[in-house]
């Protein structure tokens, strides 16, 4: 499990390298999907199965679908992937940079700093984060209300921003 989680952590960093290296949005969305999926794995490894589920369902299932849809709408005939020269430069620079910094910290990482916290509790049914999130309905009620308010606010923001076919210099057909 420790080995797998460390692979997941590596995958998280590489996924962000894939997003940050300025490929076409098509591929950047793919990189973010990979990073989010791997992040779910990390959370499972550290015992947050409910939070991982939330990340998978809401983030991957909700938001990234919208992003992938937008990326598909804006698709170019020849999208730049990570193999193209300009993007490859960024990929190499970012990867080497991360590896250098990791090498600087490497001496401080001994064996137990890699070990996943609840290696031996894999079969327990009740996880702490499930009951922790449920606190939102009792002690964290105010935060829930603020969240609901901001979601309502965002609805109006989006409606106001995208309203009206006749707005703007170019008329969208």
């Amino acid at each position: 499990m420790t080995y797998i989680v460390s692979l997941f952590l590596l995958g998280l960093v590489l996924g962000l390298v894939a997003v940050a290296s300025n490929p076409a949005p098509y591929f950047a969305a793919l990189g973010l999907v990979v990073a989010a999926g791997v992040g779910c794995g990390v959370l499972v490894g550290y015992g947050g199965s409910f939070l991982s589920l939330v990340l998978f369902l809401i983030y991957l299932g909700g938001m990234l679908v919208v992003f992938a849809y937008s990326a598909a709408l804006a698709a170019e005939p020849f999208p730049e992937s990570w193999g193209d020269r300009s993007v490859l430069g960024y990929v190499v620079v970012y990867t080497v940079g991360v590896m250098l910094v990791a090498g600087w910290f490497w001496s401080g990482w001994y064996e137990t700093s890699w070990v996943v916290v609840d290696e031996f509790k894999e079969f327990s049914v009740l996880r702490g984060d499930t009951s922790g999130v449920a606190l939102m309905y009792s002690y964290g009620g105010g935060m829930l209300i603020v969240c609901a308010w901001v979601l309502l606010l965002t609805l109006f923001v989006v409606l106001e921003l995208t309203r009206g076919l006749s707005r703007g210099a170019l008329r969208a057909v």
């Binding site: 603020v146 308010w149 901001v150 965002t154 109006f156 923001v157 106001e160 921003l161």
Partner: peptide, 9 residues
């Protein structure tokens, strides 16, 4: 964040 979102429209 609420501040930023509210002033955008």
């Amino acid at each position: 964040e609420i501040n930023t979102l509210a002033i955008i429209p």
